[in-house]
Design a protein around this nucleic acid. Structure first.
Length: 563
RNA sequence: UAGGGCGUAGCCAAGCGGAAAGGCAGCGGCCUUUGGAGCCGCCAAUCGGAGGUUCGAAUCCUCCCGCCCUAACCA
């Protein structure tokens, strides 16, 4: 059982009986987009930790900004989390459920002289806060200056705050601010804004409010209301922890959750910020949030990633505070590890070239046994038809092969998987000199793939009987960004300039063995020697579409690349 | 600049004063009816650097260096 610093801290809390030994965690997404694999790291950690202690896990939407949030994303996030096996039972919450309570607590702070209504504009607040400025080539951070409204009498602030709620003032004209310390070295403590006036329809509360609490004012109290014992979040909130604690210290809340921060997940060749993902979608660089090239959970799902593979990946990368960049190869490794033992094998020719077995009787068909998964005998066998005309992979034949190539070539003998040894006797070319047919003879004594005389053959090829083949489209994906770190671009360069123009290659004329006729969207297969594929929802009867989730490891490709 | 954080192999990551786990990638080899899978072997005289404490330091102390975050009425 692998541990990490967060699990150690929580175990230590439990050991000393903190919170009565209770462990209660949560995941607080903002419903302003679909969640990605980085979010999965976060909620799988929180959910996993709760489970390990027989504790509870809440899903709470932090929906405090009505201008960005939508019900569509609430539904999508729920669906994605369930798909990954997370269960919050009946504890689905919304920060907007706490708006009234939050409002009351704001009045508590005002009455205690710890919050005040401020009439400064956004720019003025920023200036008063003491934003860093360059002075004589040096960046200097001046202390903040008190807002002129900071000494506003309690009664006046209270009156103004109530009228803010009543809608007496225009958007952005006033804010409610916590009265903490304008000289505090932590900028978050320089009288942060708690409420802003904002006339926008909220996806849940509708038009009931025209003032909305900020995230900072909402977050810690929401955790406290729910009795969260351990609030796990990413490093960017470390600076906010003193503020959350200050609010909690000054409010009659039932709990003081312990916040622990960890580093976010980064994966090579991927962008992981919602803002950037949104741009990819909105500008049409991908086909949508569920495009199989996206790191979103729905994208990975459509691509063919399994919950098991994703969970193994997240477990495998660990939890620390160091900000690293995980190699995409590790994600693919986890998928292969998972699918190798589970995915049914099937023969599919992605780039077909016709083979004619010249000494095989015309019109004859043999149904040959093929194992469904050599890693899993329980998966059983199926039959595949063999006939005089077949499809093989174009790259499996070379007229003039290099020394390391041991597939089909003139005069060479190879095995057709589960079928026969065949020897290439010649080719037919078109006017351009391209090979359109490979002519072979077969050895009838090698039925099933073994030679009675014990002679060996170096290569085994996959194939599909031409008259029985199903037509299909395969979508072959590559990294969306060429660079390992898409965000690391030169000054003035747009990160989008690093998009890989070949991230999607559509192979239209693929040929599949007939057993695939009944494939349903979402079903996964290993196309032997080619990779793991998942049936896409775009599939139609007689026109299947498959997404390549990942290729198989390919040592021949490596040999070829090295030359 | 201020405040906060991070630095162990190409990447992720154990390590918690008794002397560098593991995984990915890579490289050799074995095996193979997927050039897949599996199996075996190799891959850190040294832990960002320099001092110090100690019989003993990746682990403790000091200073230095590098990188990241915050400086929204976003979350």
């Amino acid at each position: 059982m692998s541990s990490d610093f967060i699990r150690e801290m929580i175990a230590a809390d439990v050991a000393v009986g903190k919170n009565g030994g209770r462990v209660h965690t949560r995941f607080p997404p903002e419903p302003n987009g679909y969640i990605h694999i980085g979010h999965a790291k976060a909620f799988l950690l929180s959910y996993g930790v709760a489970q390990e202690h027989g504790g509870r896990f809440n899903l709470r939407f932090d929906d405090t900004n009505p201008t960005k949030e939508e019900q569509e994303f609430v539904d999508g996030i729920i669906e994605d989390m369930r798909w990954l096996g997370v269960d919050w039972e009946d504890r689905l919450f919304f920060a907007s459920d706490y708006f009234e309570q939050l409002y009351e607590w704001a009045e508590v702070l005002i009455r205690a002289g710890k919050a005040y209504v401020c009439d400064l504009s956004a720019d003025e607040i920023s200036a008063y806060r003491g934003t860093a400025v360059e002075r004589g080539g040096q960046v200097v951070t001046p202390p903040g200056m008190d807002s002129p409204y900071r000494k506003r009498p309690v009664a006046e602030s209270l009156d103004l705050f109530r009228r803010m709620r009543e809608g007496e003032f225009p958007d952005g004209s006033r804010t409610l601010r916590a009265k903490i310390d304008m000289a505090h070295p932590n900028l978050n403590m320089r009288d942060p804004v708690m409420y802003r006036i904002l006339r926008a329809t909220h996806h849940r509360s509708g038009d009931a409010w025209c003032i909305y609490p900020t995230y900072d004012w909402t977050h810690g109290q929401s955790d406290a209301i729910e009795g969260i014992t351990h609030s796990l979040c990413d490093l960017s909130f470390e600076n906010h922890r003193p503020l959350y604690d200050w609010f909690l210290d000054n409010l009659p809340v039932p709990y003081r959750p312990r916040q622990i921060e960890f580093s976010r997940l980064n994966i090579t060749h991927m962008v992981m910020s919602k803002r950037k993902l949104r741009r990819l979608v909105e500008e049409g660089h991908v086909r949508g949030w569920d495009d199989p090239r996206m790191p979103t959970l729905r994208g990975l799902r459509r691509r063919g990633y399994t919950p098991e593979a994703l969970r193994a990946f997240v477990r495998g990368v660990g939890v620390t505070k160091s900000e690293g960049m995980v190699d995409l190869a590790y994600l693919e490794h986890c998928l292969r590890q998972d699918q190798n033992v589970r995915a049914p094998r099937v023969m599919a020719v992605l780039d077909p070239v016709r083979v004619v077995i010249t000494n095989y009787p015309e019109g004859e068909v043999e149904w040959l046994d093929a194992v469904n998964n050599p890693e899993d005998p329980a998966a059983g066998t199926r039959v595949v038809p063999f006939s005089r005309e077949l499809w093989i992979e174009r790259e499996d034949f070379m007229e003039d092969p290099p020394s390391k190539f041991f597939r089909l070539a003139p005069g060479r003998e190879v095995r057709l998987r589960y079928a026969y040894y065949v020897r290439c006797e010649g080719v037919v070319k078109d006017a351009n000199g391209d090979v359109v047919e490979v002519h072979c003879t077969y050895d009838s004594a090698t039925r099933g793939g073994d030679a009675a005389d014990g002679r060996k053959v170096k290569a085994t090829l996959h194939w599909v009987s031409a008259p029985h083949a199903l037509d299909a489209e395969a979508r072959l994906y590559d990294v969306l960004f060429r660079r390992e770190r898409p965000e690391a671009v030169d000054e003035g360069d747009d990160w989008l300039s690093g998009l890989n123009p070949d991230s999607l290659v559509t192979a239209a004329g693929c040929k599949l063995e007939p057993s695939l006729a009944a494939a349903n969207p979402g079903e996964r297969f290993q196309f032997e020697r080619k990779g793991y594929f998942a049936c896409d929802p775009d599939s139609r009867l007689g026109r299947l579409v498959f997404n390549r989730t990942a290729t198989l490891r390919d040592t021949w490709a490596k040999v070829r690349a090295g030359e």
